[in-house]
Design a protein around this nucleic acid. Structure first.
Length: 803
DNA sequence: GATTTTACGTA
DNA sequence: CGTACGTAAAATCT
């Protein structure tokens, strides 16, 4: 059945979808099926009445198999067949007849039909010119059926977009800001501009944006804005060549230094831009007023944080980020960053996250210093580790060749699956699923090999494959001269040099205050730092928070006379959970043992896992056996994050039935845990927002269900410890780092370097910074700190430090 | 050549 | 049906 446009003739909003579905086809009305239900939810979320909207689709007849591609000649859906052209003409007529103030393009097909653009992700949330009928405006968002099938986040994006559409429905024209942009000006003009800003006393803020070639510390271009619409840029490099003479360059940097000292500075990812100014050019920016990356992280940790996305909800401008590299790109970035900052300044207070924001801002100098300082590599050790690893790999590979009689690329998941399940006909292993509705996926990784090795204890192959894979992985962390590839022990890979060292044998990492930097939907960002390859100094293996302990041996202090001190929070997350769940026994234990040395704790049997076993099995603390303690440890760990019996069975290498029984015993002995979990669920139901004891808020957007719950259970302890550590680290940096060097941040541990004779003093300083009481459930909670000292990151010995 | 998937290291 | 993170190599798409 043909499905035509419905709705009032004088509507201000025109919603345009893709094509009718089953129910639409049956009734002749657009958006009445499941996608229609989702659309209704979206509209009510945005405060739009469906009855006040015109509703239609680009295609008026349901395509075969619901595949819109049926109406196109090409796979990309850009060359329409005649019938679709006819329907587009009908849509055109509808728009001309009803003259809506805004046309909402629901999904990529509507976006393409109305504007000629492809790519809904970069266009959504931006009002753009309608090409189908010039003079009208289009506001694109996701298609309701996409919102329906994805895990919840696009729902909130779409609601945001529809709210914007509601605003745009009150006037017909596009109202882009009038930018006053000067790009690629000469040094004199630029310096004149920046100095004029400095002298203008009425001017409070300045936004700065810097471009560099990835992985180099050289600045290509600087953009400065003094409002959301006024900006100027200067080029310092044309490709690899200077765009001005040395004196002019110095005058530009002088002007920037002056600007940094007299205005409230705004940047997007200041740790990067400030680092570039500092590292090569010795221009300091001591006080950043607002980093929009950090602001967005505090306000909307669950949303993407790239400038394009921020502008889609903080501003009302055209989508400039998807345009090809153009010279006005950089000053536009600067101006829009300014506007975004003004939006967030209000938003931070509205959402009550000012303290989180201030505290994250204070982390910038620490993260940056640690990035620029880097870690030193002892190349003699590195070489020795490399050879040892290569020898082990060589031996394992040789044995595997005799066993299997052929060459196999053990890094290839496909070849591994063929070997295990086709050639050897072993029982197929599946990956753990996130939910029962997901499709089972075959796997041939480490866990599968482990399981098979239990099933076939006499087959030596599994252990050898595991050994070889382990060594190959290790080489990525140690560095590799490629000799195994030369010898044909492992297949040749695309040569990208691993573990490049700086001329001083240092490696560097970007510490990302706002967590995950990748642009996919997986972001959670609970406040822990992440670590990734340095964008300023491209040396090292990248992420430093996942280096295996074997490879840690080659990391040494910058000064060979120094030692490394590790200070880690003792049973950090377990302490937080104990207080959150009001576990009286555990609270007593943590309180009494606070300040003891590890040795004292061991003597007095202050041990969480022993205690767990004691409550589970009803035996006296001193009678708990090793096996019982291990069971206690596994169950506490698993249940804190609501793991299932399969995980416990796997970890304890017992049957599923036994694991289920243990789980019941544990939950009976620790009833508070389930009470706490229910509390969390209630808080989620009430407003989807959780607040940690340190005031960090997170809005959970995932679809209602167990995955959401588990993520929420882990949020408070994980985030609290992350914040506690970072607050402590900033304190230590500000108070003691003239003498000490901050070396590493590993989520619940801080590493610093100091002179051997200063170890005791440094430990005292670290304790002073790290022990800071928090209020949880009316209790004053202190998380204890243990110390280790060593000459390398990999060889550290426990210290019995008396508080 | 670019993008997605698989696997694997840490807390 | 632990969570969080980033990266390399293979697989797959265009």
């Amino acid at each position: 059945m043909i499905v035509n446009t419905v709705g009032p003739a004088n509507a201000n909003i025109f919603l345009v979808g893709e094509a009718p579905g089953e129910k639409e086809d049956a009734t002749g009305i657009p958006f009445v099926g499941p996608a229609g239900d989702t659309l209704n939810r979206l509209l009510s979320g945005a405060g739009i009445l469906r009855t006040e909207c015109l509703i239609s689709n680009v295609a008026r007849v349901r395509p075969a198999g619901n595949r819109i591609a049926e109406y196109f000649y090409d796979k990309n859906c850009t060359i329409p067949k005649p019938e679709l052209q006819t329907w587009m003409e009908m849509l055109r007529q509808d728009i001309i007849t009803h003259r809506p103030n805004v046309i909402v393009a629901l999904g990529r097909t509507a976006l393409w039909a109305l504007t000629g653009r492809t790519g809904i992700t970069s266009a959504r949330g931006y009002a753009i010119e309608c090409k189908l009928v010039p003079g009208f405006k289009v506001l694109p968002t996701y298609h309701p059926s996409f919102v329906m099938q994805s895990d919840g986040k696009p729902y909130y994006h779409a609601v945001m977009d529809l709210k914007k559409a509601r605003y745009h429905s009150t006037f017909p024209e596009l109202r882009y800001p009038k930018y006053n942009i000067e790009y690629n000006v000469g040094p004199r003009r630029f310096v004149e501009y920046v100095e004029a800003l400095c002298e203008d006393r009425m001017l409070e803020y300045a936004s700065v944006d810097v471009e560099n070639t990835r992985g180099t510390p050289h600045i290509n271009e600087i953009g400065v804005a003094h409002s959301a619409t006024d900006a100027m840029s200067v080029k310092l490099l044309n490709g690899r060549y200077p765009a001005m003479n040395e004196n002019d360059e110095i005058s530009v940097y002088r002007a920037m230094a002056k600007l940094f000292n007299c205005k409230k500075v705004i940047m997007q990812n200041g740790a990067h831009d400030i680092g570039l100014f500092m590292y090569r050019n010795h221009v300091l920016c001591r006080k950043l007023w607002m980093d929009t990356l950090i602001a967005s992280h505090c306000c909307y940790p669950e949303f993407p944080r790239d400038l394009g996305f921020l502008a889609s909800y903080a501003l009302d401008t055209f989508p400039w980020k998807d345009a090809d590299e153009r010279p006005e790109y950089n000053p536009l970035d600067a101006a829009n960053t300014f506007g975004i900052a003004m939006f967030f300044d209000k938003e931070i207070d509205r959402l009550g996250v000012r303290s989180t924001f201030n505290f994250e801002m204070s982390e910038i100098p620490v993260a940056l210093t640690m990035q620029l300082q880097g870690l030193k590599i002892d190349t003699t050790v590195q070489y020795a580790l490399m050879r040892e690893t290569q020898n082990r790999a060589r031996a394992a590979a040789a044995e595997l060749k005799t066993i299997l009689g052929k060459d196999i690329n053990f890094s290839s998941s496909k070849q591994m699956q063929e070997l295990l399940y086709d050639d050897l006909k072993l029982p197929v292993q599946y990956k753990r699923r996130k939910s029962v509705t997901q499709e089972r996926k075959v796997t041939a990784g480490k866990e599968a090999l482990n399981k098979l090795s239990v099933l076939y204890p006499d087959n030596p192959m599994f252990a050898k494959v595991l050994e070889l894979k382990k060594q190959i992985t290790l080489l990525k962390f140690i560095g590799d001269d490629g000799i195994l590839e030369e010898e044909g022990v492992i297949p040749k890979t695309k040569k990208k040099e691993k573990m490049v060292l700086s001329p001083n044998n240092t490696v560097h990492t970007s510490y990302n205050i706002t967590g995950s930097s990748t642009d996919d939907e997986g972001r959670k960002s609970f406040g822990r730092w992440s670590s990734s390859g340095s964008i300023i100094l491209p040396f090292g293996s990248g992420n430093l928070q996942n280096v295996p302990s074997y490879a840690r041996q080659m990391y040494v202090p910058h000064d060979p006379k120094d030692v490394i001190i590790q200070a880690d929070y003792v049973q950090a997350e377990a302490v937080i959970v104990a207080f959150l769940t009001n576990d009286v026994g555990l609270i007593k234990m943590f309180t009494e043992s606070f300040g003891m040395t590890p040795k004292e704790r061991a003597e007095k049997q202050y041990d969480v896992h022993r205690y767990t076993a004691h409550t589970m099995f009803g035996v006296k603390m001193e009678d708990v056996t090793k096996v019982q303690r291990q069971v206690g440890k596994t169950l506490r760990h698993a249940t804190n994050y609501s793991a299932g019996p399969a995980v416990i069975a796997n970890s304890l290498k017992c049957s599923l039935d036994a694991a289920k029984k243990l789980l019941t015993v544990y939950l009976r002995a620790n009833p508070n845990l389930e009470v706490w979990h229910r509390q969390i669920q209630q808080q989620l139901a009430a407003g989807r927002t959780l607040t940690t004891p340190l005031g960090r808020k997170h809005f959970f957007m995932e679809r209602w269900g167990d995955t959401l719950f588990r993520s929420a259970y882990s949020y408070i302890p994980q985030s609290t410890i992350g914040d506690l550590l970072n607050i402590s680290m900033v304190d230590f940096y500000e108070n003691y780092c003239r003498e000490r060097g901050l070396y590493l941040q590993l989520h619940d541990a801080i590493y610093v370097t100091c002179k051997e004779e200063d170890v005791d003093t440094t430990m005292r300083e670290m304790r002073r910074s790290m022990i800071r009481p928090m209020l949880i459930n009316g209790h004053e909670v202190k998380v204890d700190v243990d110390f280790k000292v060593g000459k390398t990151w990999g060889n550290m010995e426990e210290i019995n430090y008396h508080a």
